[in-house]
Design a protein around this nucleic acid. Structure first.
Lengths: 149, 149
DNA sequence: ATCTGTGCAAACCTTTTGCACGTCA
DNA sequence: TGACGTGCAAAAGGTTTGCACAGAT
């Protein structure tokens, strides 16, 4: 099994794209972070250490990551696209706290199986799916309850 | 049980908002369509019969629908916000055909129940969720298969 | 009469692109 | 050397807003 870095290098070679210092810096930085950062936030964080790298390069490189499969593009409805690391084709879904913005990943085989059943019922051939649960995490729920008293 | 129109009128009264002819036209037109139109597409369709109504008014009115609960804002990752009619707080999810753009609604109680289980495991208090399955409908799948031969 | 709503145009915000220069192969 | 990549700035694409006039209560 190849790791994410190797997968990306293979992808570049296959597409005759070039391996530049910027792409390596962005790749390493992206793999190091495990959050769900928007392009903007990721760029701002990256810029602290690498002020010369432009937003457009970051954007284009994240798109490449998505294209080669090591990143997944997410969209939680706040108008910003987020990228997350995609390990080993494992699929996971998200719990999103509308109070503090925290995002928790989860995986549930039974739900995945039921999705396949639904698809079959409608003669659909599923390629991908997105499941997001929106609500309050324990901490936000507690603080909301106390502020009402 | 009140219908969607009554719900909206109640909402306007409660908020001391005014009942204008534009809002009524947009409301009736919105309830009549059962598709998942983007604001832009909805506006273009509406303008055929009511050329004097502006985009901003349509946009603001759809937002009001979402606020009062008779519409739900959706986002399928194509950069456009879509609004759909929300009947009786019934929740449903979507199958999206990436070939022809067709959107099919479905409902699955077992999946909903499993979501609650996931939330409980993480001490989350769910308010809402979104589930979208992306793939090819039977027709697109067939035409893709035939074009490959 | 007053306060909200409308339509227009402009502002905004994020994503995408054109271009001249730099860099990898 | 030649093609691709980069950084900048500007364009694009969609959503939101300020403002002056119109309309509802």
């Amino acid at each position: 099994m190849k790791n994410q870095e190797e997968l990306f290098l293979d992808f570049l070679a296959r597409k005759r794209l070039k391996n530049t210092s910027q792409r390596m810096i962005i790749l390493k930085s992206f793999l190091r972070q495990s959050l769900h950062l928007s392009t903007e936030d990721f760029y701002l964080q990256l810029r602290k250490k690498h002020p010369a790298i432009g937003y457009a390069t970051v954007h284009r490189t994240l798109k490449l990551f998505a294209e080669c499969g090591i990143a997944a593009e997410r969209n939680f409805g706040d108008g910003q696209t987020r990228f997350e690391v995609n390990y080993d084709n494992e699929h996971h879904d998200h719990l999103v706290c509308t109070g503090c913005g925290k995002i928790i990943e989860f995986e549930n085989r039974q739900i995945e199986q039921l999705q396949l059943d639904v698809a079959r019922t409608h003669n659909f051939f599923i390629k991908d799916h997105r499941l997001e649960l929106y609500g309050l995490c324990a901490a936000c729920h507690a603080s909301e309850a106390s502020s009402l008293s």
